[in-house]
Design a protein around this nucleic acid. Sequence first.
DNA 1: CTGAAAGCGCTTACAG
DNA 2: CTGAAAGCGCTTACAG
Lengths: 349, 349
Amino acid sequence: MSSENGRSPVMADVARLAGVSHQTVSRVLNGHPNVRPETQARVQAAIEQLGYHRNSSARALVTRRTNVLGVVTFDTTLYGPASTLSGIERAAREAGYFVSIVTLTDISRASVREALDYLAEQSVEGCIVIAPQRAAVESLTDVSVARPLVAVEGGRAPGLPVVCVDQVGGARAVTEHLLGLGHRTVHHVAGPMEWLEAEGRVQGWREALEAAGAPIPEPLRGDWSPRSGYEIGLRLAEDPRITAVFVANDQMALGVLRALGEAGIRIPEEVSVAGFDDVPEAEFFTPPLTTVWQNFSDVGRRSIRLLVDQIDRRARKGSAGATETEEDLRDVVPARLVVRASTAPVQLR
Amino acid sequence: MSSENGRSPVMADVARLAGVSHQTVSRVLNGHPNVRPETQARVQAAIEQLGYHRNSSARALVTRRTNVLGVVTFDTTLYGPASTLSGIERAAREAGYFVSIVTLTDISRASVREALDYLAEQSVEGCIVIAPQRAAVESLTDVSVARPLVAVEGGRAPGLPVVCVDQVGGARAVTEHLLGLGHRTVHHVAGPMEWLEAEGRVQGWREALEAAGAPIPEPLRGDWSPRSGYEIGLRLAEDPRITAVFVANDQMALGVLRALGEAGIRIPEEVSVAGFDDVPEAEFFTPPLTTVWQNFSDVGRRSIRLLVDQIDRRARKGSAGATETEEDLRDVVPARLVVRASTAPVQLR
DNA sequence: CTGAAAGCGCTTACAG
DNA sequence: CTGAAAGCGCTTACAG
């Protein structure tokens, strides 16, 4: 695999073996035209014989392109971020980029900046930040960032392209579904205030209630965990006027189902429960959960497209300086209601 | 942030501003001794004033080190791989490495090779393959790999360092727990044959039954999904002799719980059910699931340590050639039984 | 269609 | 303690 003297082969070794100059090897490697077919074949043969791989650092040094994209993400063991990351990675590879990731453990402004600086040291050509918290988004707009950037689930941010799922629309759809079943109103178990997705879902829920002229109860706040859903569920069980609950994610919905179940409340006969995310398990909860599906691979694809567009545009202009203010790019991916057995027409409790 | 003429600043710009040569800047950046404190301060000031970042490609070209590690993983929306990836990423960063990931969609020998070749083009210094399938491991041993490699959940492979959770021990513990509750035997819902983790769990279960002199039923095969657990659960529900089921992961266990529930079978009064993984939801299943916890962040830490050790050893020897056969490194992380409400002493059904 | 030359931005001995 | 020189392995005009 390596050349005779033990080090890995370089372009010059290939050139020598093929009886050409190293520029010709470079041309073959880069698919330039103007190489005689037989020369090309000789070079290819030499490359294979030596097991030659182009040195990516040398190439990056001269082309000023690393072909690396950075992704900053938060807690990849949550279903949403994990699915998004996976979609991003696939789309990036298809676009010819490598993906370097940093997982955040805490979500302060400082830690996001730190992650971006860290990725900058690796000379990434652009970054995607999966940062659904308010603090994260602010940390992105605070400083004029030197290189292309896309926020996923980022909320509205001036000059920062954003790709997000239509949280508001999804929440509205699930709330309307519950109202349509005859429920007088719908209670809401929300995610943490700092999370933009949590706010979007609150907003959609509120809009649907307002449009229907239904009473708007105070939302109860969980932290996305099944445990928080369970604890809130215990409280919900005590109020007999509650007949419908929209929970901001499936994990918390699981906790709510469990708490209501323990209290002897039958679902959906006495209380309807709906979630958000459509995790693979949701279909097998007891009962199977009505929820909202998000197209994460689409989110990945679109965010890579937005990022690569920025990179290409900048490359064409040849400017490494500040970006001129771009129009507010905001790509909203629709959400889809999935109706299962945890929601039903209202009955007396 | 950039130098006057619009391009990003280079070492020479810093040198000029600080009134030193660019070598001195390099020394400061690399923390070399033998730089006068005041020179160092001047250089630091110039670096900050210009917003200078060292060009990583140029550095990698001359040091022959990219500081990038590759991770090949399979379906990061599964709890195990996602948690492992997250542990690896954190440990790598602490060790001063960047992490470049490739997510596999199918798990053929060819796709693993392709992913490794892809990472090789980025000049990663070593790779971790989270590849719990037989085919993946074989693809790693098949070809003598040019650079350091560690397999996670890889089974026994000659010359290939492996970090894995003690699947056999975990499965034995959960089976012994069920036998200890008085069950005559324990049925098993296994994962797919190609998965080494599935096989380890079958083995531990079988060993425990053999040691107890209990009958050994044929394991039923699922595909890790809740749906497959559900379908197998429907069959289990029909056999009244079954009183205890060990399911190879929590997602399938959820499906089993659901199927038994639909059949009117009470858990754990009539049938005990246990899982494996301890996903965050497991505690909130109905009933809360007895399962086995795996320390994924430890797996991440240990696999990075093994990989970095290999890299350092190679760097010291200065050999880029073939690795000499190393002792079979195999780092086994213990698993821990977590008893909850889904398992109970045997009763008549 | 192909080669000789310059240069990308660093680090690493080597002098002093 | 600091600088002049060489070189890492490529690509990119520029000749021919």
